[in-house]
């Protein structure tokens, strides 16, 4: 197992290198001169002197290969540079936005796990019942509604409407912003904070919760038909043990894979939810850095997202061993 983890971590090095190098090259293919944009060229015609100074200040006057080498030299020293646009340290920007993304992401994932798996399981066990049919319709609907529409509707129902009808404050949820920053143990929203987290977390979780529920249902139905389930019952195990110990653990493998991949997505590219709820996370900051041609921010934040993806994917792989004891890592041919 440890050697497997080491191998996987080492694999991260080329992954990060190629992902960022690709982005670096891609950046210079985007239309528009970054120096022109730094000088404000998106909205007007900047002074050529200002453009030239921007170019010199950020080494954009040097050939791309030189810039590429310099970039990697700096990155290896964990110097992510400073923003072209406002000269803030990318490390600071990363620290601030990653924290916000994690806090929101953790709650979205928890909703996904609890609701998605729960609903999928019930639908599978009560196949073709009314509850199955209703969840099928709801999950299909949820995965079809665009995030910004859902967010907007939730805002209206749980924040605007209660305010217009004079509901007490604790029943009014909040539509935007980070809230009063009253977190306990880093991610538990206490005080007023919970009112700010609920709507974005539900919105962010909505689409994938529906997918998780569908996948859980399908996977469970397949497992329920498996021979070993019949064997377990034949051994005289009670139905609860059959479902939980034998059925659920096996059925969870593809679902956990989906959730693991989704964790990276939720942390790194939740642009729409972050925009709809003015939640300053990593995704919207990366999108903003692209429109501003802010290369250091774009690469610095992407680096963190690549690492999050890789770690989530490693955690998923390792979890297989728990779900299915037949899976072992570390020895060639076993995994």
């Amino acid at each position: 197992m440890p050697s497997y983890i080491v191998r996987r971590v080492l694999l991260l090095v080329p992954t990060v290198f190629f992902a960022l190098s690709f982005l670096f090259v891609l950046f210079f293919q985007l239309p528009g001169d970054p120096a022109n944009l730094i000088a404000g060229g998106a909205n007007r015609t900047p002074d050529p002197g200002v453009i030239q100074r921007a170019r010199e200040r950020y080494d954009l006057d040097k050939p791309v290969p030189t810039q590429f080498v310099n970039y990697w030299k700096r990155t290896l020293r964990w110097d992510l540079g400073e923003s072209f646009a406002d000269r803030r340290s990318v490390n600071d920007i990363l620290g601030e936005h990653a924290k916000n993304s994690f806090r929101l992401g953790i709650w979205a994932i928890l909703i996904e796990i609890v609701v998605g798996i729960g609903v999928g399981l019930i639908a599978a066990l009560r196949r073709y019942s009314w509850s199955d049919r209703i969840t099928t319709v709801i999950t299909a609907g949820m995965s079809a509604v665009p995030v910004f529409v859902l967010g907007f509707v939730l805002q209206y129902i749980f924040a605007v409407y209660p305010n217009k009808h004079g509901w007490p404050d604790f029943l009014k949820l909040r539509t935007q912003g980070l809230g009063p920053n009253t977190w306990t143990f880093f991610f538990v929203p206490t005080g007023e904070e919970w009112r700010y987290v609920i709507l974005p977390a539900v919105t962010l979780a909505s689409v994938t919760t529906a997918l998780v529920a569908r996948m859980m249902r399908g996977s469970m139905l397949e497992v329920l038909r498996a021979d070993y389930m019949r064997t377990a019952r034949a051994k005289g195990l009670d139905e609860r043990s059959v479902i939980v110990k034998h059925g659920l653990r096996n059925a969870l493998i593809p679902v956990v894979t989906l959730i693991g991949i989704d964790f990276g997505t939720i942390i790194g590219v939740a642009v729409l939810t972050e925009t709809t709820f003015s939640w300053p996370g990593l995704g919207s900051e990366i999108a903003r850095s692209v429109t501003r041609r802010d290369l250091p921010v774009m690469l610095g934040l992407t680096l963190s997202v690549v690492v999050i993806y890789a770690v989530a994917s490693l955690a998923v792989d390792l979890s297989y061993a728990w779900f299915d004891p037949r899976i072992r890592f570390g020895r060639r041919g076993d995994a």
Binding site: T175, Q176, G177, T275, T276, S278
Partner: peptide
Amino acid sequence: FKVSKDTDTAYNAFEAGE
């Protein structure tokens, strides 16, 4: 002055008394 990422959301927030 609060920074809102979206005009419609900001208007919702205004209507929600935020």
